[in-house]
Design a protein around this nucleic acid. Structure first.
Length: 285
DNA sequence: ATTAATGTTCAGAA
DNA sequence: TTTCTGAACATTAA
């Protein structure tokens, strides 16, 4: 579930592990298929046990735990992963457990219902290589207004598809892409190279506003109830959604449009045809 | 039984 | 070279 606001909420929720020393790290006995851990757990243990956690950061949809070595332990929740410091929603899906000492919390957990998430340990060198590889763009809350359009500009892809691509900007997912484009009144299928120069600042402004507001609400917990903050409480931003998962309902903004659902890049896209007309493409189709 | 789900990646085809 | 499609990963719930 996690997009940038949910992952940022996780990061803040586990911040108390800063300063702790890692006593043990194990792949929890879990009857489900094990999640991917790189390097293999026994090698990973050798590099993290006995080490101290010096900072908890975030990059896009990843929680980055910095150690007092060259290494960073990276948690990537993907669809249903949670990084927690206390008992998870259902013990059945606990995947990874670190015991800690020297801080106010004594464990760090990774829980994942579907098990698509992954854990990765990267050295400084490997981490830098990942950042410069072009596979991961700048964080959506770090990028400047000036750089923002240049990440999309010449591409002919639909703007919503480009927003979901983590190499464009890191952190935006299916919920927030829809919400941002609705606020900015841009049709999700509009090709990037047909977005007017004057519109990019609007998209940038609404991107920051939606993400920052969603962080204040501690993210969105959808109807399946999976996503929880570190205290096992639901987020609140789902009640603020303007288009996501509201197909057939009246647009909250114009009160007349009916929210439509289309499929782009095999993902549902929700938008208001009235607030988000595809002006630049009107002649097509 | 079928479908879709907050994500990512890969192969193969336009 | 770029973009799109389908499938895969694993699990659950409607």
């Amino acid at each position: 579930m996690p997009e940038l606001p949910e992952v940022e909420t996780m990061r803040r929720g586990i911040k108390a592990v800063t300063g702790a020393t890692i006593v043990s790290a194990i792949r929890t006995p879990c009857k489900k298929k094990p999640i991917e851990i790189s390097p293999p757990v026994n090698q990973l243990q050798k590099r993290i046990v006995g080490r101290k956690i010096v900072a908890v950061e975030r990059l896009g949809k990843r929680v980055v735990v910095r150690l007092d070595t060259v290494d960073r332990l990276i948690f990537e929740p993907r669809m249903t992963g949670l990084v927690l410091i206390e008992d998870p929603p259902g013990g059945e899906h606990l995947r990874f457990q670190m015991r800690l000492k020297g801080a106010t919390v004594d464990e760090l957990l990774f829980w994942d219902r579907r098990g698509l998430g992954r854990i990765e340990l990267l050295s400084d060198e490997e981490y830098q290589a990942k950042l410069t590889s072009g596979k991961l763009g700048p964080d959506a809350l770090d990028i400047s207004e000036a750089e923002f359009p240049s990440r999309f500009n010449s591409s002919g892809r639909a703007i919503k598809v480009a927003m979901l691509d983590q190499s464009t900007v890191a952190g935006i997912g299916n919920i927030y892409a829809a919400e941002i484009l609705h606020l900015a009144r841009v049709h999700p299928a509009l090709p990037c190279n047909r977005v007017k120069d004057s519109v990019w600042p609007d998209i940038f402004r609404h991107m920051r506003d939606v993400l920052i507001t969603a962080i204040k609400y501690e993210g969105s917990t959808l109807s399946d109830g999976t996503y929880r903050n570190a205290l096992n409480e639901k987020g609140g931003y789902q009640n603020e959604h303007r288009v996501y998962d509201r197909e057939g309902e009246a647009c909250r903004q114009c009160k007349r449009g009916i929210i439509k659902r289309i499929v782009q890049a095999q993902r549902s896209t929700f938008f208001c045809p009235s607030c988000q007309p595809m002006i630049a493409l009107r002649k097509k189709k």
